[in-house]
Design a protein around this nucleic acid. Structure first.
Lengths: 224, 224
DNA sequence: ACTGGTTCTAATGTATGCGTAAAATTCAAC
DNA sequence: GTTGAATTTTACGCATACATTAGAACCAGT
């Protein structure tokens, strides 16, 4: 997940680097950090770091507190529930809209490919690759839904639970049958059955929510 | 809607002032502005203005473009459709969740009051007051839903369409029967009927979406 | 030792200046 | 007149310095 793109500006660079530090856990959940420290760590002045932090705050990844440095936003089971509830609604609508658009096989190709990648990853028990393909699948789904705001929101939600997801990825049971659901979703979209597509995606997220919350509780992961 | 709170920092002050300038149309949709100009206009240096603009960009109110100044984000009928679709889903869920919570009459009092205010405003044909009460009603609804992310998102959506709403407010038919729907929603929540509450709110937003898009088209308002 | 107020410190909030790169302009060649 | 390169302009990106203030440390009086 390391973001090695060359960012043309220091601010952009700071954003990607801070994101990596947060997602990798090097900046732990709930920990406080000074602008100056972060600036030195990234090898630039406070200004671009500050701007990066402001943007990350809008995305709910950090909290800038007046004269108290920034806190890496903790992620609790309640947050997980909130995120999944939002995803259930918005991805459900996106699925329905995608189905209503009479998409060609070419349009659906990326999703089909993502499913294949997930299955390949499951076959060799590579959970990171599975997660990456899953990301692409959901991203494509909302993109095909055609509502840019939904795409933006789901992207932010995905980022907010990235740390938690990383942990869960390795304590959850292997996602064996999820690709079967994914196929059914693509079929419903291809068939133009909006109601079915919505129902499948809602079900997918609702079940996942229950599973993940159960896992978090069982492992006493009250904050990530 | 003028925000006269004393902001302790210049950045906060810049945010509220820029918002007012945008919502009032003094910074017109699609127009470009230089950081320097805005800073001078607000009587402060570029730094806090820049930070304010970054925050407003996260909320979709402006777009900062490399060395081209900031553009006040235009709002088109497509945007309106997107916003209403998001609101339909998220407020629908919020309504259902609020209904599932066995709320007391005290909890519901703000919504009831808002309905009364809307009716009073309609009675004297004061559309601004009606809009303000309507804002409060929807804000309370999502708050009672208990999902902070939904509250945040709906707030941002409301801001994005604020300009458009202001125009529409005066060309739409008077909202005579909307308070009847609102009452039914509150009743459903009070009765704990989650499905009905969700259905009522979804219907409310769906109908409004159709009405507003029709109005925009009829008046050739393709950008606001 | 405890409490109240004062001083001090340090981190952020803000201003400012300079370097840079993109856009605009000019000018020359065709 | 048009095109394209060189030049100039200019607005932002970023570094830096200073002001402000929240919180810590400290001191004196009880």
């Amino acid at each position: 997940m390391s973001n090695t793109e060359t960012a043309s500006s220091n601010t952009l660079l700071a954003i990607t680097q801070l994101r990596d530090l947060i997602f990798s856990g090097q900046l732990g959940a709930g920990t406080d950090h000074l602008e100056g420290e972060l600036a030195e760590r990234l090898g630039m002045s406070r200004t671009p770091v500050r701007e990066a932090l402001l943007r990350l705050e809008c995305q709910g990844l950090v909290e800038v507190r007046r004269r108290k440095g920034v806190r890496i936003t903790p992620f609790t089971p309640k947050d997980m529930a909130e995120v999944y509830d939002v995803l259930t609604e918005l991805e459900g609508l996106a699925a329905a809209r995608a189905a209503a658009r009479n998409l060609s096989d070419d349009d659906l190709a990326p999703m089909v490919q993502a499913i294949a990648d997930m299955e390949a990853a499951v076959a060799v028990c590579n959970r990171d690759d599975w997660a990456a393909a899953d990301d692409i699948f959901h991203c494509e789904l909302v993109r095909l839904g055609g509502n840019d705001r939904i795409s933006m929101i789901t992207q932010i939600m995905a980022d907010q639970m990235r740390r938690a997801r990383l942990v869960i990825l390795y304590i959850r049971p292997a996602p064996m049958h999820s690709s079967k659901e994914h196929r059914k979703l693509v079929d419903a979209i291809r068939a133009g059955d909006a109601d079915l597509a919505k129902q499948i995606q809602r079900q997918h997220r609702t079940v996942a929510k229950g599973l993940l919350l159960q896992l978090l509780e069982r492992h006493h992961l009250s904050v990530l």
